[in-house]
């Protein structure tokens, strides 16, 4: 199934803020007024430099934090304030997160099968033991693991296999939205390719939407329908993958794209990426707003700045 833009978005994030107070004089504005939405079956890639707030957004959406401000709507339900029982269950079943470090997120003393079945157990999503086993076996097969793997422990798997376990654990709940935080960064290229192909296949089969958080832009380009570019907790530019890659407008986006390393030593050796330094950029993020350029392409800036960027890229 491809992204379905005729329906209502499955996830709407409006003016999300997440502040952390570190000391009486130092507050980190990890996420500062961020809005975006994701449609059923769509893959939305979230990119941005380290510390820009990607993980915080993911964790805020799945409510591991209480957002400082803003509104998040999932499948029509407001999931921002205090959650009633039904909304909480909706959130914990229909939305799943795959964490960055597969090893740290898997209980070392539990068998793989039981790790994968944990969500089923908590939400009592089966009536018989056989049904539980069947469900787990089906997911194991889906992610390319064998039924015999059920009784193994996490350390007995390779990095790529462990990442599949993380994916299986998310999938078994039949989620409609999967938040994947850097889920392939720690894997080597050949396994990255396996996992990304697998995620694409699963999307075809189940129609799940993905929030794909990553810093590897070549992978993001490959998997995403739309992309959001984050910097210092702000959404600076968003649009279809095509729009962002063919006509990046914001200077930060442009520097990000120019930094993608290519496996070509002769061009790579001599090249330096475009510099972008907020302090000396002359931009003031407080003054700009996220403004529509064309189609689904939006960029953050003042009218004057945006006019200049459009001028220089046309």
């Amino acid at each position: 199934m491809a992204a379905d833009y005729s329906q209502e978005p499955i996830l709407k994030v409006e003016h999300m803020k997440q502040y952390f107070k570190v000391s009486s004089s130092f507050t980190v504005k990890a996420v500062d007024d961020v809005s975006f939405d994701i449609y059923p079956g769509e893959t939305y890639g979230l990119v941005g430099e380290s510390g820009s707030g990607k993980t915080t957004i993911g964790r805020g959406i799945i409510r591991l934090y209480d957002p400082t401000d803003g509104k998040i709507t999932f499948k029509g339900a407001d999931i921002t304030g205090k959650l009633d029982k039904d909304t909480f269950k909706l959130l914990r079943t229909k939305m799943q997160m795959i964490f960055q470090d597969p090893m740290a997120s898997l209980n070392p003393r539990k068998k793989i099968g039981d790790i994968i079945g944990e969500g089923l157990d908590i939400h009592k999503m089966y009536s018989t033991k056989e049904e539980r086993k069947q469900k787990i076996d089906r997911i194991l097969a889906m992610v390319g693991l064998a039924a015999e793997h059920y009784d193994r422990y996490p350390y007995q798997f390779s990095g790529g296999q462990r990442q599949r376990v993380g994916i299986a654990r998310a999938l078994i709940m039949n989620p409609e939205l999967i938040i994947a935080d850097e889920c392939i960064s720690a894997l080597d290229v050949s396994i990255q390719a396996q996992v990304v192909n697998l995620m694409k296949d699963i999307q075809e089969e189940t129609g799940a939407a993905y929030l794909f958080i990553a810093h590897d832009l070549s992978m993001v380009k490959y998997i995403s329908d739309r992309i959001g570019v984050l910097h210092l907790g702000r959404m600076l530019e968003t649009g279809t993958t095509q729009e962002i890659f063919s006509r990046p407008l914001h200077p930060y986006t442009r520097s990000l794209l120019s930094a993608i390393p290519s496996p070509n030593p002769r061009t790579e050796k001599g090249r330096t990426a475009l510099e972008y330094d907020y302090a000396t950029s002359g931009l003031d993020y407080d003054k700009g707003t996220l403004t529509k350029v064309e189609g689904s392409h939006y960029v953050h800036g003042t009218a004057k700045e945006i006019a200049e960027w459009m001028e220089s890229t046309s």
Partner: peptide, 12 residues
């Protein structure tokens, strides 16, 4: 794997 956790600009 010094830069796997880093975005491309910082990596560069």
């Amino acid at each position: 794997e010094p830069t796997t956790a880093l975005d491309v600009t910082i990596q560069a």
